[in-house]
């Protein structure tokens, strides 16, 4: 989508996406369940006119990486606490004592925050990020906190080059 609001098709990904939970949070659907049903041959459980999008959801991808250099961080997770509370969902596989190895991608989990509107979901996400505790390895949680406090992001003035531009300007740190 260009700055004038014109859409261009880029690609269609024929698979479940990493960020599918935010769609689940605003629609109330379980997309994996739907996927399994239609693969079996069952019809979709919902019609277009029944789909309701309610509220706003944000996802932060928590990666095992240095928040400044972005190099992957490996090692043992000495302590772990994921956030909770109203509107918060965490999809993760890691447990305290697990070892993060260098063989695969650095995704440790995803924190999702739902709110009745965008401001509320940002507020809830900030609280969730503050509550989150991962010790033993480095994560990009500090970057998420800074992103969600930046005026351009709070106001929703987003574009695909924004994060890199902000990093270049050394706005964070």
């Amino acid at each position: 989508m260009d700055p004038n609001g014109k859409f261009y098709f880029i690609e269609a990904n024929a698979r479940i996406q990493v960020e599918h939970p935010i769609t689940e949070m605003v629609s109330g659907l379980d997309l994996i369940r739907e996927q399994i049903h239609v693969a079996f041959g069952d019809p979709l459980s919902i019609k277009q006119e029944e789909i309701r999008i309610e509220g706003h959801a944000i996802e932060c991808r928590v990666n095992a990486e240095d928040p400044e250099t972005f190099s992957p961080s490996t090692g043992k997770i000495e302590k772990l606490h994921w956030p909770g509370g109203p509107g918060i969902r965490v999809d993760s596989h890691i447990r305290q004592g697990d070892k993060v190895t260098p063989f695969y991608d650095s995704l440790l989990g995803k924190i999702m925050a739902w709110g009745t509107n965008r401001d509320e979901s940002i507020q809830r996400m900030l609280c969730a990020l503050d509550e989150c505790e991962v010790l033993g390895i480095k994560t990009n949680i500090p970057l998420h906190r800074q992103l969600l406090r930046h005026p351009d992001i709070v106001q929703g003035k987003l574009h695909v080059g924004l994060v890199e531009a902000l990093l270049l300007e050394k706005v964070f740190g």
Binding site: L29, I58, E59, C60, H144, V160
Partner: peptide
């Protein structure tokens, strides 16, 4: 089922979506 905004990326890897 609606859209997702995935503009916050670094080196074509998404970081945050809404």
């Amino acid at each position: 089922v609606g859209e997702r905004e995935c503009s916050l990326q670094r080196q074509h890897q998404k970081i945050m979506e809404e």
